[in-house]
């Protein structure tokens, strides 16, 4: 069984390659992100809300684009054969893809979440919304992991897009479901973040699911016998 460390040098090179391939899009998103943060920082309610919505949109777009550009297009543009002719096993390749995508997504995701938390803590917004914000962010990350897994396992644009649509629809349902929970909505206007058993349970559940999806993807990838 190949593990991440047996061919770390090549995995690093492949991640570096993916970075170079999406460098331009990422630079554009990055500039967009700075603009959006700046808009939110103008501290008027309208600009702040617009900025927040733009930021969530940006997160979803970055996730969708990186999964499509880095995974689906590799198959569609037939560059997969080129990469697999290099000294890597298909498992190494899958690790590299998982690594590249997570790196490229987790960094902006973390920045967004930390940025939002910083805003909440430093502004008159009730700190009670923190559990809600964290749970929704984790849900967005979980959605991303789901369609990344679909892309890696099927290389199918159709299936991946379907999962993207479903998870984005579920996001709305999830937010409404959360808001209806007494344990969540009763504490929204509290001066401090109140983590109770419900919100902590949901958080643990979300993180567990993310780990299961990622490990499951890696495990299924190991069992494949045929590539290309």
């Amino acid at each position: 069984m190949s593990n991440i460390f047996s061919n770390a040098r090549m995995i690093k090179l492949l991640i570096g390659k993916d970075w170079q391939l999406v460098k331009k899009s990422l630079a554009a998103y990055l500039a967009g992100g700075v603009l959006v943060i700046g808009l939110m920082g103008m501290a008027t309610p309208l600009l702040f809300n617009t900025g927040a919505i733009l930021m969530i949109t940006l997160m979803i777009v970055i996730g969708a684009r990186s999964a499509i550009e880095l995974v689906i297009n590799e198959k569609k543009d037939q560059t997969l054969a080129f990469v697999l002719s290099l000294p890597v096993t298909p498992q190494d390749y899958a690790w590299a893809k998982l690594g590249a995508n997570l790196l490229l997504y987790l960094v902006p995701w973390l920045l967004l979440v930390l940025g939002m938390l910083a805003v909440i803590v430093s502004s008159p917004v009730y700190n009670g919304v923190i559990p809600l914000v964290v749970l929704v962010s984790v849900f967005i990350l979980l959605s991303y992991c789901c369609y990344l897994a679909t892309a890696l396992l099927t290389y199918s644009e159709g299936y991946t897009t379907a999962v993207m649509i479903i998870t984005n629809l579920l996001l709305n349902g999830f937010i409404i479901w959360l808001l209806r929970m007494p344990a969540i909505h009763l504490t929204l206007e509290a001066p401090t973040a109140s983590w109770n058993s419900t919100s902590l349970g949901l958080l643990t559940g979300g993180i567990t699911l993310i780990i299961i999806v990622l490990l499951g993807t890696a495990a299924l990838q190991q069992r494949k016998t045929s590539f290309l």
Partner: peptide, 10 residues
């Protein structure tokens, strides 16, 4: 000097 970068300053 707020914790958000100011667009005008950038």
């Amino acid at each position: 000097d707020w914790i958000f970068p100011a667009l005008w300053a950038l």
